[in-house]
Design a protein around this nucleic acid. Sequence first.
DNA 1: CGATAATTTGATTTTTCTCAAGACGCGTGG
DNA 2: CCACGCGTCTTGAGAAAAATCAAATTATCG
Lengths: 231, 231
Amino acid sequence: MTIQPQPQSIVAAQRARAPATCAKPGSNLPGLTLPFARNQEIYVADAPVSFIYRVVSGAVRTVSGLRDGRRQVAAFYLPGEVFGLEAGGTHHLSAEAVTETQLALTSRSVLEWTATRDHEAVAQMWSLATHALARTQDHLLVLGRMNAGERVASFLIDIAERSNSGDVVNLPMGRGDIADYLGLTIETISRTLHEFEERQLIALPNCRMVKLLDVAKLQSMDAERTRRGRG
Amino acid sequence: MTIQPQPQSIVAAQRARAPATCAKPGSNLPGLTLPFARNQEIYVADAPVSFIYRVVSGAVRTVSGLRDGRRQVAAFYLPGEVFGLEAGGTHHLSAEAVTETQLALTSRSVLEWTATRDHEAVAQMWSLATHALARTQDHLLVLGRMNAGERVASFLIDIAERSNSGDVVNLPMGRGDIADYLGLTIETISRTLHEFEERQLIALPNCRMVKLLDVAKLQSMDAERTRRGRG
DNA sequence: CGATAATTTGATTTTTCTCAAGACGCGTGG
DNA sequence: CCACGCGTCTTGAGAAAAATCAAATTATCG
């Protein structure tokens, strides 16, 4: 849907600077960090999996799309969160930096070596993978069965919880990314936020900052989830 | 969305009949199979993970939902496919038999015991988990960005490929399940199938049987995927 | 063979998208 | 410091897609 400027790939350079040996075995969160510019590609779909990544600062989106330009953002990753694990031998999605971003890299080979001897590390990786799946499954319910208001409410609550900055959320991503994450258009995102503002559910000091005024009401739109198949 | 009759839970009975010891270690596809009736619950969300399951015959759906009755089918599982692995300690979704179904069970404890000594088994489980994630991510694109025709086309092609019965697909699930899988209503499913029939893309001998007449055209609606973030 | 559930079909309404302007913000350079 | 330009966001009006409501038809099962 949203077309953005083409970022130059520096994956090759990244690899050159981050050989497998520089991540310390036994430490699953190595010290090496790399900077990425806004909209810069971190990896492309179908590329072999070479690293897993932890967001140090900034934000990352994983993306798939159709050839006609329609885009789907599968997930956002905020500081402290790990991504890139959600693949077999090759990446299934692309990953891009949403803003200026610092990423901590761990090479896959080190990780695999660790996994052969450290059951704790295996359990951690398994946990990461299953959480990623659970999150994606929740996202299905949002995209398949929620209306615009419910989608935006669930998004705001999710981001607020994960950025643990209280009720004030600083959105790293623009309206286009939110739209492509929620399966809506930028206009609908804008209108829905404006409607929430009028209903005193949120305040919008500026377009990248949201203050949640009535979390309970926002949650009641979203969180009426049930795990049962039939209500 | 679709409300169906409440099935009685026989999870307790199932457990009693399938103690951890009856699955053979070293064999990841044990001989024990259990029958499930149409719409019968296999496991509930938030229940501890006790088994993984392979579909011997029939079909299974995994489901989440909202309290007001809206339902989202996350996935269907056809004969030969494995499910129930996509969880940490507890299930995130419910699983239900779509039709009369035979399931082969492997107890989780046996699986974990195997995993501590058999790296091949670990790799297999990892592969299952990452494929489940990749499938779910593809589903996001369907629900977030495709129109009704594209959704139905992608569904038909997917089921046809997985049931490898040539161009003739026998749908184990009703319109309601398809609707809840594709984020549409039963009426839209029905109308879209009828439109496909008129356009000679499919034949509908009866409502549970679809013959794909123009797979290429169906695929061109669906498969124009690109893994790149921007077209 | 009849009752009940599932599917199809039609008419109408609602939601969201699309298209089109306009406003705002932000960085750059004069 | 302010004007300019560009990208992003907002706002509005109309169009399109799918949902909803309602009824008829067909399948399924005892």
